[in-house]
Simulated scan of single mutants.
Amino acid sequence: MSKLGIVVASTRPGRLGLPIAQWFEGEARTHAGFAEVGLIDLAEVGLPFMNEPNHPRFARYTHQHTVDWSARVDAVDAFVFVMPEYNYGFNAELKNAIDYLHNEWRYKPVGFVSYGGVSAGTRAVQMIKQVVTALKMTPVTEAVSIPFVHQFIDDEDGLVPNEVMTAAAKSMLDELVRIEATLRVLRPAPGQAPQDV
């Protein structure tokens, strides 16, 4: 029973990430490639700036917020990061959330829904790929890239996608399902430490 976690990376007031993530959540539920689909809103998770004394690979967490975050990530089989672009890169809250953990991310595929201006957040996606591959995550090539994002946001309806975005979402979900099934045999059961730690 595979589970998809859709991470809302932006936490700032007035953010567009939440309506975009809610749209993608609907696409994922319609797609039905995952048994469970859930939003993970970093604004609600509320992690402080990294404050664990031990390296995350040892999973010797000293704070309850880290224990809770570990359990939440560990229970998910594949991820989609819904992310803005800040100054050609991805935002600090997402980097912080990633850095809190290590083993919980391993051998899981990740897709990206990025948004911004003319670049559609694609420069941020290129930057984050270096980070996720260091954790043995597998970024899929298929992506949803939303340029000039404000034109797709309606105050009442949230994100109003075009056909390109909808088709891209399906392609990415198709690939996430395939890659998750392939990587599943490499992952330990939730809560079980990898053998090489």
Rank of each mutant, 00 (worst) to 15 (best):
Q192D: 13
A59Q: 13
G5E: 02
Q195P: 03
T133P: 00
D68K: 12
R57S: 15
H31N: 06
H65I: 01
D196Q: 09
G38K: 11
L183H: 07
G38A: 15
R106H: 15
W105H: 09
D155T: 06
P48L: 04
V125R: 05
I40E: 02
T141Q: 07
A97Y: 08
H63S: 14
P147Y: 06
H150W: 10
E25T: 03
I20G: 01
F112Y: 15
P19I: 08
V185R: 12
V118K: 09
V160W: 03
Y100C: 04
I146M: 12
A120N: 12
F34V: 05
A143Y: 06
E27V: 01
Y88G: 00
M127E: 11
A124R: 02
V76F: 10
Q195H: 04
A71H: 12
G17P: 12
P161Y: 06
N87L: 04
G26F: 07
V76R: 10
D154I: 06
H102E: 01
Q192H: 12
A124V: 08
A189R: 14
W105P: 13
G191A: 13
K108I: 08
S119Q: 14
F79L: 11
K136R: 14
T182Q: 06
L186E: 10
G38C: 14
P188E: 10
K129T: 05
E156G: 05
K170R: 15
P161A: 06
I20Q: 06
F79C: 09
S145A: 15
I20T: 04
A143S: 15
A124W: 02
Y100D: 03
S2C: 02
A32Q: 10
F112C: 10
M172K: 04
F49N: 09
M127I: 01
K136E: 14
L47Y: 03
E180H: 07
K129C: 09
G17E: 11
N96R: 00
